[in-house]
Design a protein around this nucleic acid. Structure first.
Lengths: 211, 211, 211, 211
DNA sequence: CATGAATGAGAATTCATTCAT
DNA sequence: AATGAATGAATTCTCATTCAT
């Protein structure tokens, strides 16, 4: 490896360090405590270096959000890709989302916070797009032989994300709920998401004209 | 009315003034601009008076959140109480939630933000409890003659809130969606919430063992 | 004096202190060094206090500029008001401007800098307006029995200010000029300003149609 | 051409690039935004290279000022050299100055800002010296057969510059003035400058003893 | 009871300049 | 000869909170 490459790698690594530091602060101290100064302190550099790698704080948040989506998508891939049965896979997807939201609440919240400020998060964040595709593909398999349009599948996937998100937020607020209830909520969420396809048959009269 | 009462009344009114000022700032300038100094400026008192009525900023946010729930519940009551047909009423409830979230985004967001930090928002916030009861009552009527436990109805109501919230958040992120899509999303949300009861029959096998 | 007044006076004095500190920094360290932090250091308060008295730095500069105009107008009044002969008075006015610009270069520069950012400095700054009136009145007397419109006099006064300013700036750039030359420049400036009225007769053909 | 010369030429060109970049930033983003970092970005070199060509920022400003004088003098030469009638030429000179000050305010301001910090801008900046000569030559022609000393002509030329500058600054501050007034101000400025020579006869008594 | 006054801590950002390589 | 990397020192400004009065 030439010296140029080594330097480029070092440079790229400092960028990573910044994001890792930001992520660590996010996890440990919370979203509100995430300041440029703290990031600089943690990487043991002076604050201005950050501006060599990111235009401003917003750019950091977006990149951090991307990192979160990567980690999230990594979990999904790891836990669900191997499952071939569509119902099993969908179950695993919902469960993975659910657990990620609980274990990495700060990350999960940031993903929605930043996503809300973007015009089109599903295309802006590559890994979110991949997740949407994966979900869409899974739903397609769930449909079986029935033919579905791409548009329909994407829409259903987004709806699935919405339903999961709603339950996850509810779960956040019911923080003193006992584990049993939580477990039941997760099960129900799985069912609802599953039924997004199943009940397609039931409500086809209403939805039919949209597609 | 003795002077003691008059003073108590004045005191109570100043408390209201503080919250109204906070609400006005929230609506006009957004969540981030909500500072004690600005509240004090608006009520034309000095910042320290606020500490006579609220322990700290967090306490204000909680009380403000209560005010938001009151306004929200007011909308619900006004738009939906009069409707006796359960399907019509439920449709009105979902629609009212949806519109409130769009028109009063700052309030809606605060309600979930603060709600997430509380241990049990459904009991802590009286008006949220009332809304839950109202929803529960509506779902009960929707069930018709079928007998449902209170617990079941509350749970379904919370689920309905979750489903609505998920769709509302999705709607936030799809900021460049056209009005048609938005209108369809609302219709679907209504259907999903309605089906929380209808599909009870369908999925009773799975859910039955919980109750 | 009641305690309320005393406090109000103290408050008003701190405002003055801030401006005096700003003025001192302006004189000693120059325009570029005039920062809020330095002002705070000098009055031995913390930086945020300044925001109790001024909205932002721009507001300080405007107020400081006002102070400069006051001091400037004070010099004019002190040196020139007593002179009744219009030629003597005009001579004194130009001389006072000239010396002020030399002795208080930083103040003089600030006056033009801030003046340039205002839409109408002659009305915004009371003392500048007073100076313009005083100049106008002096030029009127210089005209003798000839009748002049107010508009004409104000215009000529502004022109006088322009001519003086031009010479003052030239004098700034000729910093290594010997005292004799400087003294001659001042004398010429006086003559040019005086001739703004005298040559009215000469150039009346050209200017006549304007009024 | 040897490699030494080629290198020298390259070096000289980079110097030009730096100044051109600085000029572009000055025009587009304004005086306050003119930073070394921005210059480096624009020439696509790293900041430290600038220090190979200029001692510090001040040195850049001086060289940039020189460039401004070149452009300014270019306008003068282009617009006025061809005119042989002295009155026409003087009119063109004043008009060109006036328009340059309006159209290239940032450059014009910088020229005076830097000029004020130099000990003798008329000799330090070659093109300013050329302009002074040109003005002087024009005034000489305006004098007709009357014999004038060089010193006298230079002095009058500087005075002309002062008078123009004064009116230009006044024009800056009267930003809400209507086009008519502005146009009249320009006409008057031309008259005043013209009269610097004409009224020589009138005020010769007073000025005579200086020469 | 109410508050004016004050502040410490902290925010994002920009800049000219240096230095080892 | 050129630079990537880095920084110290600034900048303006906001905020929640305290305390003597």
């Amino acid at each position: 490896m030439g010296s140029k490459e080594r330097i480029a790698k070092l440079k790229s690594e400092l960028r990573k360090d910044i994001l890792c530091a930001a992520l660590a602060i996010l996890k440990n101290d919370g979203r509100q405590s995430l300041s440029l100064r703290k990031i600089a302190d943690r990487i043991e550099y002076s604050p201005p270096v950050i501006y060599s790698y990111f235009k401003n704080k917003e750019a950091i948040l977006i990149a951090l959000c991307e990192l979160c989506y990567q980690q999230f998508n990594g979990c999904i891939e790891k836990n669900c890709r191997k499952l071939t049965n569509p119902e099993e896979r969908l179950t695993a997807i919902v469960t993975t989302c659910w657990n990620f939201a609980i274990e990495e609440k700060e990350m999960y919240d940031l993903m929605w916070e930043v996503g809300s400020t973007c015009t089109d998060p599903f295309t802006q964040f590559k890994e979110l797009g991949l997740f949407l595709n994966f979900l869409s593909e899974t739903l397609k398999n769930l449909c079986g032989k029935k033919v579905c349009t791409e548009e329909y599948l994407f829409h259903k996937s987004q709806t699935a994300i919405a339903v999961m998100h709603g339950h996850i937020c509810l779960n956040y607020t019911l923080s003193n709920a006992d584990p049993k209830l939580r477990s039941r909520m997760l099960n129900e969420t799985i069912l609802y998401v599953m039924n997004l396809i199943n009940d397609y048959n039931l409500t086809s009269r209403e939805l039919n004209n949209h597609y």
